[in-house]
């Protein structure tokens, strides 16, 4: 009898501790995401909704601005995430060598960009990539380019600027995850490989990378989710997707549809569900890929 009273008490206490968080998550996450699903089937402007069935989804397929935003977002994802993660892995591998001179200095320097606010660094990048700015001057002084590049005025180079900016901001962040994981790998595995004459690149490829698989998966997933939601940089560095929507992302488009033009919340919700579906599919594929390679 006393036992069951204690057990009931435990149950009660368990709920009390988790309840505030669950209520808030219900209010500000589950309720809005479900509401958003309902809204994605509504058409109309401002606060006047009416049921539109699959009209919004049809509109997606015929909306050139949406197609462009989707293509841009996927381009950023496909190019930026691999570059950043490979760089992070290389830096982490180099810094994992305890004989390296100035190791903690290098680590701090490469990590430093993570400390900046997105807005502050976007501003700094915008000024660096001006037509007569420091970037063009340095590249011309080094004879890498002959003529100044119209970084922010050309659709291709504007994408390059956005990709460089995000890579600058997040490489150190991912590097820290890899470094921490590398320090957990048993040293004796490397010693054994070294004695057997395994060269450094092979030790990296056949020992380090497989051992880091869970962390690589984790960083790939969070980078994918982050890049699919890209907003701050294109809004600030390229003034909301300029030139001619070449850096317009899905998040920017949702923002424009809801808050910049005459609001069409229903359609914005449909676009936002495209991100939800993409995150779901890509995360699923990444988990599958990680499992396959292990087998």
């Amino acid at each position: 009898m006393a036992q069951s009273g204690f057990a009931r008490n435990e149950q009660w206490n368990g709920w009390l501790f988790v309840m505030p968080a669950l209520i808030l998550l219900g209010l500000f996450m589950i309720y809005p995401i479900l509401w958003s699903l309902w809204m994605s089937f509504q058409v109309g402007r401002g606060m006047n909704f009416s049921f539109g069935g699959f009209n919004n989804i049809l509109r997606l397929t015929q909306d050139p601005v949406f197609i462009r935003a989707l293509t841009n977002t996927l381009t950023f994802l496909a190019i930026q995430v691999p570059i950043m993660l490979i760089l992070a892995l290389l830096f982490a591998n180099a810094l994992n060598d305890s004989n390296l001179w100035g190791r903690s200095w290098f680590r701090t320097a490469i990590f430093l960009p993570c400390v900046t606010s997105l807005v502050a660094y976007s501003v700094v990048f915008k000024s660096m990539f001006a037509q007569d700015g420091i970037m063009n001057q340095m590249l011309m002084a080094l004879h890498i380019i002959g003529d100044p590049i119209p970084w922010l005025a050309d659709p291709f180079w504007a994408k390059v600027v956005i990709i460089s900016a995000i890579t600058w901001r997040w490489t150190g962040y991912n590097m820290i995850f890899y470094l921490a994981a590398m320090q957990n790998i048993d040293r004796s595995i490397y010693e054994a490989a070294r004695i057997d004459g395994v060269p450094a690149w092979a030790r990296f490829w056949y020992i380090t990378v497989p051992m880091l698989k869970p962390v690589i998966l984790f960083t790939t997933v969070i980078s994918t989710i982050g890049t699919l939601q890209l907003f701050d940089e294109p809004n600030l560095i390229t003034n909301g997707g300029a030139p001619s929507d070449s850096t317009l992302t899905l998040s920017l488009y949702i923002y424009n549809l809801s808050f910049r033009f005459m609001p069409s919340f229903g359609y914005a919700a449909t676009v936002s569900y495209v991100i939800v579906v993409l995150v779901g599919i890509l995360t699923f594929i990444q988990f599958l890929a990680a499992r396959d390679r292990r087998a």
Binding site: I33, Y255, V276
Partner: peptide, 14 residues
């Protein structure tokens, strides 16, 4: 993995 982009519109109306 729920992106904030999917929450901002309903949260704003709320």
């Amino acid at each position: 993995s729920i992106p904030f982009a999917a929450l901002m519109v309903p949260l704003f109306i709320m």
